[in-house]
Amino acid sequence: MLAYGYRKFGGPAVFETIDQPALKPTANQVVIATLAVNLNDEDRIERLGANVSTPLPMIPGHDVVGRVVQVGAAVTDLPVGTLVAAHTEHAYAEQVCLDADSTVTVPDNLSPTQAVSLITPGITAYKAVRYFADVQPDQTVIVKGAAGGVGSLVVQLSKRVGAKVIAIASQKHADRLTALGVDQFVAYDHQDPAHVLADCGDVIINVALNGVDGKADLAMAKFDATIASVAGSLPATSKSIRFRSIHATNAISDQAALQMLFKLLSIGQLQTNIGYHLPFSLAGFIEGHELLDQPHNGRIVIEK
């Protein structure tokens, strides 16, 4: 069984083909034949060796869609041939072993590529809106990083709740975000959002890289607002603010989030932006990580 990984940390060229033994599921597991993998910034960070305790050799990858080819003895509801998705580990491989409880069945009208593009950004966005920010109808929600994979889903999910949504991104993304139904767009490369939107937001959701510029978040927030950010903290302030740091949580399970996200995607109430379709090969994974290392527009999907 072929997989794609690395024996040392570094740039995209560290990837190589790694032969793995055949997978055998335990009683509560299934083995899938991989059809699509979604690349995430977490994959890039791991490859660079940010966590020196990462075991080597490493088969990376967290977002996978495939068809069930083997079923453990205790699994009764996932017959062979079922198309499933999961947020997991070691997904850059021809076959992946999954806990049956972690899998979500993909609706018939979604392709593997559509489904896989939604996994990590969708789970993050869903939990940001529904749990960390707890967005309510008629609130004014300001989304920083609105053009990114997570941010554009935060925009759509907040609109679906019934909030007024203000998107912050660069001017080149204005048309796409307007098409997603934002109530106001502010181009940070043309205007200062902290000035234009001073004291406007009931909720600030900051999913820009590293939760940049907490001072601006505070400036845009109303008194007693909620700020949910991928940053770990906020600057000191005299405002009464509820701060929620967005992080991995099981308060809403990944499976529950994915089930709802797939439903919305399948009925046309959610859109993802797939920018790159690459072959499921060593060259495809190397090219995908070269794209991860630079500014890019849209999800990077490796597909068969």
Rank of each mutant, 00 (worst) to 15 (best):
D213W: 01
V207Q: 03
K164Y: 07
A198R: 15
S158G: 10
K172E: 02
A187K: 12
R244T: 03
Q171M: 13
I204R: 12
A174P: 09
R160G: 14
D183M: 09
Q139H: 14
K222V: 15
A208F: 07
G151A: 02
V230T: 06
V196H: 07
I204L: 12
P137W: 14
D192N: 13
R242F: 06
D175W: 13
H173F: 01
D213E: 01
P193D: 08
A208L: 08
K172M: 08
H173I: 00
G149D: 00
I166V: 11
K239R: 02
Q136G: 15
Q171K: 13
Q139G: 15
V230S: 06
A221F: 14
A231V: 03
D199E: 09
A169C: 06
L209N: 12
D189Y: 14
N210S: 12
A231I: 03
A169V: 04
V141H: 06
P193H: 09
R242H: 11
K159C: 06
T237F: 11
D202W: 02
T178I: 10
H190C: 15
G148V: 02
R244A: 12
L209R: 08
V186H: 09
M220C: 15
D217M: 07
L180F: 05
K164L: 09
G201D: 05
V230A: 08
S245H: 14
A146Y: 02
D192T: 13
V182F: 02
S158L: 04
V186S: 12
S238V: 05
A225G: 15
L177T: 01
A219V: 11
V230G: 08
G151T: 00
D189T: 12
A174M: 10
P137D: 13
D202R: 03
T226H: 09
H195D: 14
S240C: 05
P235T: 00
N206M: 08
H173K: 01
G148W: 00
T140I: 07
K172H: 08
K159L: 12
R242T: 10
L218S: 03
A169P: 03
A236S: 06
